[in-house]
Amino acid sequence: MKEPVVADTLQISEADKEEQYVHAVYNEIAPHFSDTRFKPWPVIERYLLALPKGSLGADIGCGNGKYLGVRTGDIFMMGTDRSESLVEICRERNYECLVSDGLDLPYRDGAFDFAISIAVIHHFSSDDRRRAAIKELLRIVRPGGTVLVFVWAMEQNGRRKFEEGTQDVLVPWVIPAGSKIETKDKVFHRYYHLFCKGELESLFQQVGGNTLEETGYDRDNWFVITRKE
Rank of each mutant, 00 (worst) to 15 (best):
79 G>E: 08
32 H>Q: 07
54 G>T: 00
229 E>L: 05
56 L>N: 02
154 M>V: 06
27 N>L: 08
177 A>G: 15
167 Q>C: 14
161 K>P: 00
138 L>C: 03
155 E>F: 09
112 F>D: 03
122 H>C: 04
140 I>E: 03
116 I>K: 02
109 D>V: 12
200 L>N: 13
100 S>A: 15
94 N>K: 13
200 L>I: 07
150 F>N: 06
224 V>E: 07
169 V>K: 12
66 K>E: 06
55 S>D: 03
46 R>Y: 01
11 Q>A: 15
223 F>D: 04
118 I>W: 08
52 P>N: 00
72 T>A: 09
153 A>G: 10
120 V>E: 01
172 P>H: 07
121 I>T: 10
66 K>N: 13
87 V>C: 11
163 E>I: 11
89 I>F: 11
188 F>A: 05
203 L>R: 04
149 V>D: 06
66 K>V: 13
227 R>W: 02
185 D>P: 09
53 K>L: 10
49 L>I: 00
68 L>V: 04
216 G>L: 11
219 R>E: 11
96 E>T: 13
215 T>A: 09
57 G>Q: 04
102 G>E: 07
198 G>N: 10
213 E>W: 02
107 Y>K: 11
174 V>R: 08
97 C>I: 13
6 V>E: 15
208 G>C: 03
221 N>H: 12
96 E>M: 15
78 M>C: 05
206 Q>L: 08
199 E>K: 13
139 R>A: 04
225 I>F: 05
104 D>E: 14
160 R>I: 04
133 A>K: 03
99 V>G: 09
143 P>M: 02
204 F>N: 07
44 I>E: 07
149 V>E: 05
194 L>P: 02
12 I>A: 07
166 T>G: 00
173 W>K: 11
24 A>G: 09
219 R>H: 13
220 D>S: 03
155 E>M: 07
174 V>H: 08
187 V>F: 10
110 G>V: 11
70 V>H: 02
209 G>H: 05
142 R>V: 06
15 A>P: 04
186 K>C: 11
38 F>I: 07
102 G>H: 05
182 E>N: 13
87 V>I: 15
209 G>P: 04
177 A>S: 15
160 R>K: 04
32 H>A: 13
80 T>N: 11
131 R>L: 10
79 G>A: 12
70 V>G: 05
135 K>D: 08
154 M>S: 14
109 D>Q: 12
178 G>Q: 09
106 P>R: 08
142 R>Y: 01
90 C>Y: 06
8 D>N: 15
24 A>H: 08
29 I>V: 14
86 L>K: 09
21 Y>L: 09
225 I>E: 01
90 C>F: 08
142 R>S: 04
84 E>Y: 07
201 E>Q: 15
